[in-house]
Design a protein around this nucleic acid. Structure first.
Lengths: 223, 223
DNA sequence: TCTCCAATTTAATAATATTTTAAATAATAT
DNA sequence: ATATTATTTAAAATATTATTAAATTGGAGA
């Protein structure tokens, strides 16, 4: 069953959408504020988040950012209509689509199907050889033994696993994990983290077998 | 350079969008009808198609279907406004997004970036005889065996493959790979790289069969 | 509020592979 | 035959990545 988290404080929208989406075959839970939303996300696995970005409490952008960096779940923004600013920066913050209120439910359903198709659903447990990452628990292990990764090490590993087979350039990694687009984070920070991660996950960190260096292009984890 | 094919018969839209998207850093080609569009697609590689579905000649759906089944390129529909029918069946036909006219160029740009991000760009595998380059993996192979190319060798090969059939002059190559327009990179650098690349990809590097020298003009890779 | 601790970032240095240069040789066209 | 263009070779210069250690930051608990 595909689970959708609806983050919205307008009660009537919540009730209408819940009814409609349930009829469409989704399981819907709702949260009226960003704190509640993040709480729910910590405890349950969702496949998609519908996010009202005009939440009274703070703005929705922060939530989106948090979701994106911690859970890798697709997010669709529900925006106040005609707010071009929102749409543009929404995408840039990692939203996967947006829809302006008021919207037709059928169109929303269509966009949901589309995003789920494009993002291929959410994975909860990712395996690669001896390494396992459980994104629900937020924990990683090697041969079943817990790996004690720091938050950034964890996110870096997760990003690699979500993009295995791909060459990931340093700017790409910096942007994905440190989310400053190139600026202000010492480039070497990444190098240091690669080293630390290797130290924890590789059998022979000097001759890494999981995270490979492709000189001049970036790093890559094989399939 | 990311290449966009704009399929649209309204001249003023074509001209406006071409200008705008070019300024955004895309390479834009346009076709006024579906036949022309499909012709272009046969001969060039595009990364994304913007498709007006109210084309006079036939409807856009057929084109979209053809694109999707033959090329696996993301398609964004440009629809007449308020046409819900179009949006729903558009997605179902494989469109990756749609935008209703009239739209704000910035929003279109935003959607383009988003789709390219979601679909991970197109251009993933390029083949030429025994040589294969996979730009997602960032790796090249010959007869399925890995070629260990340096970053510049890789970029050079990629550039040749993206421009096969064309004669590429030395200044052109220098500018493309070394991105120096006004010299200061020893002209021979290119020659040396051609040699190294040939050594790795040619069966008989002394009698190159892939990268041909066209004396006085430059180099060329046959189609 | 303060202190301490772990996590993160930065800086300095080393190791290594790539890139550039230069100079000698070969091939081709006029 | 000679000038021009292209190739080859090998060594020098540079860039990129890895390592190590020290400085900084920010949060949990006293």
């Amino acid at each position: 069953m595909i689970k959708i988290l609806l983050v919205e404080d307008d009660k009537s929208i919540v009730s209408n959408l819940t009814q409609f989406l349930t009829a469409e075959g989704y399981e819907v839970k709702s949260a009226s504020g960003q704190t509640k939303a993040l709480n729910l996300l910590e405890n349950e696995r969702f496949d998609l988040v519908l996010l009202d970005i005009s939440l009274s409490e703070g703005n929705g952008f922060a939530v989106c950012k948090a979701i994106k960096s911690n859970y890798n779940i697709p997010v669709i923004f529900l925006t106040a209509s005609g707010d071009e600013y929102s749409t543009v920066t929404g995408f840039e913050l990692g939203a996967d689509d947006y829809i302006a209120k008021p919207f037709r439910p059928r169109e929303l359903a269509s966009r949901i199907r589309n995003i789920l198709r494009l993002t291929g659903g959410t994975e909860t447990v990712i395996n690669l050889g001896k390494i396992t990452v459980d994104t629900v628990k937020g924990a990683a292990s090697k041969n079943g033994k817990d790996l004690y990764l720091s938050a950034l090490e964890y996110r870096l590993l997760l990003f690699f696993l979500n993009n295995r087979g791909r060459i990931l350039s340093r700017p790409q990694l910096l942007e994905a994990i440190w989310d400053v687009a190139g600026e202000f984070v010492n480039d070497n920070t990444l190098t240091v983290y690669i080293k630390r991660l290797r130290e924890k996950i590789e059998d022979d960190p000097q001759n890494p077998n999981i995270i490979k260096t492709v000189r001049g292009l970036g790093y890559k984890v094989e399939l």
